[in-house]
Design a protein around this nucleic acid. Structure first.
Length: 295
DNA sequence: AGTTGTCAAGCTAGT
DNA sequence: ACTAGCTTGACAACT
């Protein structure tokens, strides 16, 4: 099992997701932001490798506006060499990599333009991973999308649009259960029909489920990952006390985390800790895991 | 220099 | 019909 945290490191003092306003977009701005982001990404990866955190989610903002029509800049050829350098770093340390396009990326929207833009953004994600030289074990995680008052048709639309994705996207796309509309069971049903691996989010599952235990859900989800996909990826978080349900905790709830590990006994997966204090909690989680493996 | 409103993009649930 | 929240900062326009 590899452990990691998403996108942002709070201790080394740089960001791999610096961006700017669309109104001030220029080739120069894109270049300088991306150079900064790739440099910082390298620093974060070195930090993580040093600490033994070998799962990382790369920010979608590495190349700002890459899939937007304003971006006519040939970022792929311009940054080819830099991407390859970072890719070597990733391979050298044996990192597992994921990316998570944000809420505007909706494959099953009834609005064709939304779908078109979403596909372009997904291609950017796939291109970025390809430039890094990553194999198909590096994944792009996406929620199924909206329901639009007719979930059945929404699922059909998802499967239809998924089938016409470019192979470079389809080979990396995995679906993640959300906390309001598409449960792990819904995702597994889609997976069965369309052959898409299911990334299991334990926190979302605790908020929306059909009564399946964590261990059953993990087992079913892990079966949807083929050899070429690598082992199951899992997102873990816990509830921030006193906030509305669904808010991620500020720091690792050790008791909840131990319970989660107990219920996942015997299943191998890579674990992403979606907790606000980022690497701090990831390191605490790693400590707990290492201690357990010794006894 | 410090403050504050705003930022490409979507969707749902709640008012 | 409209907006908060997702998640969050930091840009950029304004005092």
């Amino acid at each position: 099992m590899k452990i990691g945290y998403p996108c942002i490191n709070r201790s080394i003092g740089c960001k791999a997701s610096s961006t700017f306003r669309l109104a001030s977009c220029s080739e120069e701005r894109i270049k300088s932001a991306a150079v900064n982001n790739l440099e910082c990404l390298s620093r974060i990866l070195e930090f993580n490798a040093d600490k033994g955190l070998l799962f990382f989610r790369i920010s979608s903002d590495i190349v700002p506006f890459a899939s937007h029509p304003v971006c006519t800049f040939k970022w792929k050829s311009y940054f080819r060499k830099r991407f390859r350098q970072v890719g070597r770093l990733i391979k050298g340390h044996g990192f597992r990599i994921s990316m998570h396009p944000d809420q505007f990326i909706v494959l099953n929207s009834p609005d064709e333009d939304v779908v078109k833009r979403s596909m372009a953004e997904l291609e950017y994600h796939a291109d970025l991973m390809e430039l890094l030289g990553l194999d198909a074990k590096a994944k792009i995680q996406l929620h199924v999308g909206g329901a639009y008052g007719d979930k059945e048709s929404a699922v059909e639309r998802f499967i239809q649009n998924h089938s016409i994705l470019k192979p470079k996207v389809r080979s990396r796309l995995v679906i993640e259960n959300d906390e309001r509309l598409y449960s792990a069971k819904d995702c597994l049903e889609i997976s069965e029909r369309a052959g898409i691996p299911v990334l299991f989010d334990s926190f979302h599952h605790s908020l929306l489920n059909k009564g399946e235990s964590i261990s059953d859900a993990l087992r079913y989800a892990s079966k949807t990952w083929r050899r070429k996909d690598g082992i199951l990826m899992v997102d873990y978080s816990s509830q921030k006390k006193g906030s509305r349900p669904g808010t991620h905790a500020e720091s690792l709830d050790k008791r909840d985390f131990r319970n989660f590990l107990d219920s996942s006994n015997g299943i191998d997966f890579d674990l992403m800790l979606e907790i606000k204090d980022k690497e701090k909690s990831a390191l605490n989680a790693l400590d707990i895991l290492v201690y357990r493996s010794m006894i």
